[in-house]
Nucleic acid binder design. Structure first.
Length: 359
DNA sequence: ACTCTGAATCTAGACGGG
DNA sequence: TGATTCAGAGT
DNA sequence: CCCGTCC
């Protein structure tokens, strides 16, 4: 996901950044500096790459594929008749992450000394397993499904950019379940009903209705039974709606077990010359920037021995605005239940910096 | 009058100099 | 892809 | 904070 957004966002003149041989470097630029920033804040990241998607997702992927193709047509058309802005707009929509992009990012991480794993299927599911096993403090993702996959903690907006507008959000599954007053099985059913990548949404059922239905009936079986026996025919379950299969994916996703040798992660010193060779010689990055970045990595691998974020996070007071916001979309609901109890989190460094500024 | 869904729209990174 | 905003149907 | 640059 990050690779995708780097490809979309890291641009100049409507074009992705490129080496002098015309190869895209946006993904490397994004990965390199974001990772550097994260490490510099005392965090030891572990990257999880997506594997082959589960079969249930093929319907959704087909839709995305169709949308991409449509965007490509519009892109071509815009190149002929449209304005530069239109061309750029459609260009962003046609972005696809290739195997090469992924491989280059892995090569970069190896040179940086940052561990990673390629998940058998969904990265979010693998993240959840690793977080659950204590291999990492939390799973960082924008995808709420991470909680559905049973990650005890989900971090959103984990970027340490200065210009970050959104605060880092730390969502605890236990507090979320507590806030919703549900067990995990019900939570999974709720998430499925809210709409997930594996199933078509049920028309007319949005976040509020979904929550009410699960509350009233307890399980998806009962909800489906209720809907189908409702004389008023208010809702209609789609033709092909294998919710048990979706549930099974959330309960038992195909993942690498945390005690697998592949999950014996090591954070190592960067290969400085390797980084220079790759980023400078092959991709045309500025050598001074790369070297000083590598130096930072080297320094941090020695000092940052903390394997947990705990010491780095500190709750900050919640604003009234945020509290009032508690009524919205589906995943927000999940966050909402949690927001009531949990506060947004910031890094120690940041908090200190802010406190310093304020004083 | 209020609640809710769903369609439309916009946007997306990181950094630093001025 | 997600977040935000808005129109209109439903209650 | 705004806006250009990174490659």
């Amino acid at each position: 996901m990050s690779i995708y957004s780097f490809l979309v966002a890291v641009r100049s003149d409507g074009q992705q950044l490129m080496s002098d041989t015309g190869e895209t470097t946006s993904h490397l630029m994004g990965m390199f500096y974001r990772t550097l920033r994260i490490v510099d804040n005392g965090i030891k990241p572990l990257y999880v790459f997506d594997g082959a998607p589960p079969k249930l997702k093929s319907g959704e992927l087909a839709k995305r594929f169709a949308r991409k193709n449509e965007a490509s047509e519009q892109h071509e058309e815009a190149k002929e008749t449209g304005t530069a802005e239109e061309v750029e707009k459609f260009s962003r929509r046609t972005v696809r992450v290739t195997r090469e992009h992924n491989e280059e990012c892995r090569r970069l991480l190896r040179l940086m000394g940052i561990p990673f794993i390629v998940a058998p299927t969904e990265a979010e599911a693998q993240c959840a397993v690793l977080a659950r096993a204590g291999k990492v403090y939390a799973a960082a993702s924008e995808d709420m499904d991470t909680l559905t996959f049973d990650s005890p903690i989900l971090l959103r907006h984990l970027t340490f950019s200065e210009q970050r507008k959104e605060p880092i959000q730390e969502i605890h599954l236990d507090k979320t379940l507590e806030g919703l007053n549900m067990d995990r099985k019900q939570f999974i059913d709720l998430c499925i009903l809210l709409g997930c990548d594996y199933l078509d949404p049920v028309p007319k059922i949005g976040p509020n209705t979904a929550l009410k239905l699960i509350r009233d009936h307890g399980t998806l079986e009962k909800v489906v039974e209720f809907i189908e026996s409702d004389p008023k025919k208010k809702y209609a379950i789609p033709e092909d709606w294998p919710y048990q299969d979706a549930r099974e994916l959330f309960l038992h996703p195909d993942v690498r077990s945390a005690d697998d040798p592949e999950c014996d992660f090591k954070w190592e010193a960067p290969d400085v010359e390797g980084l220079v060779q790759f980023l400078v010689n092959e991709k045309g990055f500025n050598e001074d920037r790369v070297r000083s970045a590598a130096q930072k990595l080297q320094k941090n691998v020695k000092t940052a021995q903390q394997s947990r974020l705990e010491g780095f996070f500190k709750a900050i007071p919640k604003t009234e605005d945020q509290k009032k916001d508690l009524k919205r979309k589906h995943e927000e609901k999940v966050a909402d239940a949690k927001k009531k109890k949990k506060e947004d989190a910031k890094t120690k460094k940041e908090t200190k910096a802010k406190a310093h500024l304020n004083s």
